[in-house]
Amino acid sequence: MGKSLLQFTKKGIYCSQAKVYIDPWRPVDKAIVTHAHADHSRKGMKHYLTHHYSIPIMKARLGKNIVTQGLHYGEEITINEVKFSLHPAGHVVGSAQVRVEYNGEVWVVSGDYKTQDDGLSTPFEPVKCHTFITECTFGLPVFLWQPQHHVISSIEEWWQNNQSQNRCSLISAYSLGKAQRILYNLAPLGPIYVHSSVDQMNKAIEESGIRLKNKYQPITKHLSKADFEKALIISPGTTGDNWTKLLGKFNTAACSGWMQLRGMKRRQNLDTGFVLSDHADWQGLNQAIKCTTAENIICTHGYSDIFSAWLREQGLNAHTEQTLFQGEE
């Protein structure tokens, strides 16, 4: 038996035929990057191949001088007879699954994905393959997401409720992904401010011509309490910096798939938690896997051992591989 098309090595997922790594976690010559989150898109690669939308984001995070090449979804590139193409993963703007084909054998690396359409990211598209490398951050049947509009309206309700108590609303959401998802989908009930790291990501996304719908302003030290009256503030952490002193009274909430667990919410001592995730829930994972028609499933990050045991019971050839991917905050 020859070498697998893709192997899990110390440096990352490796295609030896093409001498290319996918989302490597150590510096390599050539990297294909599924999306711009820090655990998938790391610094130190000599050359990055990724979706066009991810390039400005990666430059904002890793430096202007990185060497990049952009692809559209579905566009094919051949390296030493191996065909590579990117397909929407629905995770964040620019996120892609990587399809790898050689000698009639097809592998797909999912990166991170969700099957729910968030309105902003290009929606997930299943890709038929023989071997599917899937994430399973929320690979447990207790994780089931509500439709997005339910979550969005509870955020709006919370915001209005805070307004009626003359408090501003500080919502914590990951600076790439959920921050824009909220910004894009929320009804404009008042002024919206964003933490500088969110502002940086917004600008990088807008560079690709994508509009975030709602008006927003970055927080600066020139703002005063009066500016924040009735406002919503989107920030990667609920507090932590001096700028919260500018706000006056505020209520906090966090957005994460982990908020589905009562214990997580309590341990973090949060007022409010909204169950909102950029990863697939239990149903999403199972559906996605079915649609690939793959017989071999390799599970990475999250509840990978439990999830692969479940898949084996469903008659699939599934196993777990260790990676340095980290899942959701």
Binding site: S172, P236, G237, G240, T244, Q268, N269
Partner: peptide
Amino acid sequence: AMSGHGRRANL
């Protein structure tokens, strides 16, 4: 290790 809360939510 577990992350804290309040002003130490990121730590």
